[in-house]
Design a protein around this nucleic acid. Structure first.
Lengths: 349, 349
DNA sequence: TCATGTATAGAAAGCGCTTGCTGTAACGCT
DNA sequence: AGCGTTACAGCAAGCGCTTTCTATACATGA
């Protein structure tokens, strides 16, 4: 039914081996022969059988990209950048690799299962993006899986995720703590002393690091934090909206709200406006990530820019072995404070 | 080096055949035997060899999802929904399928190459999302490829893309024309007579259909369109910003700007504000898609809501053969006009 | 008691490709 | 002329799994 290598070989009057070599271009073949083979391939509309080829060659052209939420531009941007470097089609010829974006939805089980699936496919490389889940058991399971992948020759790169020592994975970590600290220091510098914080989901490294940075800034300036000032929620706008209302309820005297990321900050803005508060005159707002829409918010969002595309591209190149790994296998990627319209001096109370 | 089925079989003291059957659960195996095998699998840390299995069984658990731009939430949301239905891990057991999100970047070649790559992998299904490129040659090539995929048993579903008759693909099309028309009629109903239109890239079905709807509305109300009122650009905010400045330059008397999508509309809003114009008092703005951030814009965006997640989910189910295809293999998905703060009566000139 | 079923396990033939090794011309060199 | 090279091309042995067909062991009904 389907056309096989043998069919092409028969038509081109050569052996299957020759056809394979023409297709892979990894062995000298006389120009005339090559031409004949190519012609047969074309005429028969032959398409290589991926699994068979992967089995025989014991290699695969799949590269996995794990993301927490593909509908979130934070991950979309990284995935896009990684993928552009992976080559996919369009990369330099020969290296046609299929980038597989896997959406874990933040679920530990899915994360693990996807890793197994990729292991099963003998993926050439795997890039894990975004924060990790902070659960000892799960982390141990992940580390062990990653080590196995690495041992099996799959290059594993962590992009925007904390290093996993001893696993053989290369890490490009975001300096969430430093960024968070810088951001809050900016607000403190403006005069804010009562700052609400909308954190991401608990048990996530990103959440914890950003919050730690925030607290470090407070501590550095001798501001004692009121436990009521921190609320946890998801990384989306809805959560930001609700959390802000909650913060306002707990302490209406807050003069600034720091959000776990830009989407959350947008929700916070909406909640503040709906509560009749002006930004930044009544309450300042700050986000994190600097996603494309953040500059468009009204007022535009003060935030910490993370070089998502750049980091993704670098992760992609490392995964493809096209760039050297950073010394020690770990690199920290810094964010850049973007001061914009949503932050200002606090209102006089 | 790596553990194979045979190793597991040896350890469990059964034949490879039995191990395979235990793993696939598609043949009766005595409980005691199964247990022994599972234990061996566990002890040896065995992971099935995907390519080998795919080769022998002549099936694959890969499902491809083609998107134009993964960094755009429009596609991210659809991809996420499709993928959730595909099963991925977390779906019902047994059907562990690997969803492969492929980013074409809107390039015709990449689109085609990805399809070939998926064909090579003998993908179980392929979902093509978003508008198609309107180039006769390319379209013919795509159709032929799709037909081949379908013939080979790969289920092909188009989600938010015009039907491709005779190719065997199921289509879930967005009614871009109807939505565009309704949107513009809303503005006309408010009293607008001078409407600018920021269209997407040329040679795209989505662009054309939305624009046609817009024009149909104008025509229906006897409004003659000035060619200066239409500008083409990309589907992003930057493009919307620039196009709006251009429109304003061409005709400052415009009272409304209709954008190709929400991101473009946001850029338009920014440009208007930067030009000292109020929304909607001076100029009304309308978008398309109703992405999550649109309701958060200030003022919130009047737009046409497309049920991206629902359509994606349905496409996913159809791709998995879990839902029947619509009659005739074609279904039109309607958008819903969302009237919000960015549109109002025109200023008196 | 013997033919017949039923449940379970194994043997073995591939699936379609890659690749190490083995020819075999044609070539160049002494 | 003789022989080592060089440049291709083919043979055939797998890669690790699935699955058909066959074998065995009991249980069953007449």
């Amino acid at each position: 039914m389907t056309v096989t290598l043998a069919d092409v070989a028969a038509r081109a009057q050569v052996s299957p081996a020759t056809v394979s070599r023409v297709l892979n271009g990894n062995y000298p073949v006389a120009a005339s022969t090559r031409e004949r083979v190519l012609k047969a391939v074309d005429e028969l509309d032959y398409v290589l059988n991926g699994p068979a080829s992967a089995l025989a060659a014991a290699t695969s052209d799949l590269v996995g990209i794990l993301v927490n939420d593909i509908a979130d531009p934070f991950f979309g941007i990284m995935a896009s950048a990684i993928q552009a470097e992976i080559g996919g089609p369009g990369g330099r010829a020969g290296g046609e690799r299929l980038a597989v974006v896997c959406n874990t939805g933040g679920s530990p089980e899915r994360e693990l299962t996807y890793l197994t699936l990729l292991q099963r496919q003998r993926a050439a490389a795997v890039v894990l993006t975004g924060g990790a889940i902070e659960d000892a058991a799960h982390q141990a399971a992940m580390d062990s899986k990653v080590r196995k992948l690495a041992d099996a020759g799959t290059r594993v790169v962590l992009c925007g995720r904390p290093p996993a020592p001893e696993t053989g994975a290369i890490a490009l970590t975001f300096d969430n703590r430093g960024g968070g600290q810088e951001l809050t220091e900016h607000l403190i510098g403006l005069g804010h002393r009562r700052l609400g914080y909308i954190a991401g989901p608990e048990e996530r490294t990103t959440t914890r690091h950003r919050l730690e940075g925030h607290r470090a800034a407070l501590a550095a300036h001798g501001i004692e934090e009121d436990p009521r000032w921190t609320v946890h929620g998801r990384y989306d706008r809805r959560s930001g909206y609700e959390a802000t209302l909650e913060l306002l309820r707990r302490d209406p005297s807050l003069t600034a709200v720091v959000a776990a990321n830009d989407s959350v900050a947008l929700g916070a803005c909406a909640a503040l406006r709906d509560s009749g508060l002006r930004i930044p005159e009544d309450v300042s707002v700050a986000g994190f990530d600097d996603l494309p829409f953040s500059i468009d918010a009204v007022p535009s969002l003060t935030t910490v820019r993370l070089p998502l595309a750049e980091a993704g591209a670098r992760a992609g190149r490392i995964a493809m072995g096209r760039e050297e790994a950073p010394p020690g296998g770990i690199a920290s990627v810094r964010g850049e404070l973007m001061v914009r319209g949503s932050s200002g001096v606090p209102r006089v109370s």
